[in-house]
Amino acid sequence: MPKIYTNKSWLDNDTFAAWTFLAPALILLGIFVIWPIAYLFYLSFTAGSFTSTGTYWVGLKNYWRLLLNPDFLQVLGNTIYFTLATVIPSLIIPLGLAVLLNRSLALRGMLRSAYFLPSIISLVAAGLGFRWLFQTTGPINGFLNSFGIAPIPWLGDIFWAMPVLIILSIWKQLGFNMVVFLAGLQAIPPSRYEAAELDGANAWQQFWYVTLPGLRPTLIFATITTAIFTLRSFEQVYVITGGGPLNSTNLLVYYIYQEAFGQFDFGYAAAAATVLLAVTLVLVYFQLQTWGEE
């Protein structure tokens, strides 16, 4: 009686074919994602430069410098404020627009294209436009002046400079999230709304008990992508404010850029980048745990 082998070798045809097709993607992932992250983590424990002097091991010194540096703590606070003030409106406003557009079949295509347009505009070009709009002699102050309101130094005031960056970021992310929510709304079966109407549910109750539960996967995706987009913000600061005034608009990515390519303190900048990576991973994990539970 012939022997029956129940365990397949990894060299069988199916396994070999699977690894063959996966190999290019895994190699690229290792070269361009895993290796840079691992090298960044190693670099955060070193000091020196990439010149002939080289780098040397300093242990946790760079992380202690971060904790004791008031500028870094201010930048971290700026980043948290900027992220919260950007992510929440970037979810609520597009969701409301998507609900309205989902009911307006005649204008849905045109309005969807109009709202999505900011998402495909270069962030540098948009930043230059916003800097022109909000300069002291710009159109925004000209409009306010017509109502007798004195000009506001938007980009030169520690209170008003950050809202300009927040408005730009919301405007940039609004169209993308709206299209995502609109696709999610169209995937909800109409029978659920019909059943809710038969049960006597009003418009708000239908939204709360039918729309939001049906959009749970879409909300998870939109929240994570918006948070990542916000945390990696660099162009807005670089083009509009340069981190000023008085470091009030300096965000973590721009701070890393300054330390790495302005001060050539690559070990310290790598430590700050590692902190940013850790914050991002924790935030994504928290969002998955919050939105993902049934």
Rank of each mutant, 00 (worst) to 15 (best):
F229D: 09
Q173W: 09
M110K: 14
P70G: 04
A260W: 01
T249D: 06
W35M: 13
L60Y: 07
V164D: 07
S233K: 08
M178L: 12
L277M: 10
L68R: 06
I158N: 13
I256E: 00
F72S: 07
L101H: 05
G200F: 05
I224W: 10
T46Q: 01
R192K: 15
I256D: 02
A85D: 05
P118T: 08
A270Q: 00
G184Q: 03
N13W: 15
F159K: 15
S90G: 01
L283G: 06
Y63K: 03
A98N: 06
V279Y: 10
M178R: 03
L100I: 06
S44H: 04
L117M: 11
S49D: 09
L246R: 03
L215H: 00
N13C: 15
L288I: 13
I188F: 06
T218N: 03
A273E: 05
L91R: 03
L182F: 07
Q206H: 07
L29I: 14
Q263R: 15
F134C: 09
E197D: 14
S119Q: 07
I88M: 02
L281I: 12
T218I: 08
S122E: 11
G244V: 02
F264D: 12
T86Q: 06
S233L: 09
Y254S: 05
T79Q: 08
N78S: 05
T230F: 00
G54K: 04
D14H: 09
W64T: 15
S119L: 00
I27Y: 07
Y5M: 13
I93Q: 05
Y56S: 03
L95P: 03
T79I: 07
L144C: 03
G77V: 11
F261R: 01
A196K: 01
L133H: 13
F261L: 06
P245C: 03
F234A: 11
V279C: 12
I37A: 08
L97W: 03
F234L: 08
L144W: 05
R192G: 14
L288T: 11
G244P: 04
P94M: 00
T218P: 06
P24I: 13
A125G: 12
L95F: 03
Q135E: 08
K172R: 11
I240M: 05
N62W: 00
V239F: 04
W171H: 05
I80R: 10
I152V: 10
A85H: 06
A85I: 05
I34R: 13
T241A: 04
V99I: 11
F286T: 15
Q263F: 13
K172C: 12
G175C: 06
A201L: 05
A47E: 12
L174C: 09
F116L: 08
R232V: 12
I158S: 14
L252R: 06
A98E: 04
P70V: 01
G175P: 10
V58S: 03
Q135P: 07
T79V: 08
W19G: 00
S169D: 12
N202C: 10
T223S: 08
G142Y: 01
S52T: 12
T83G: 02
A187L: 10
K3T: 15
S122G: 14
I80D: 13
F50D: 02
A222N: 00
G200S: 09
G54C: 01
L67V: 12
V75R: 02
Q287W: 12
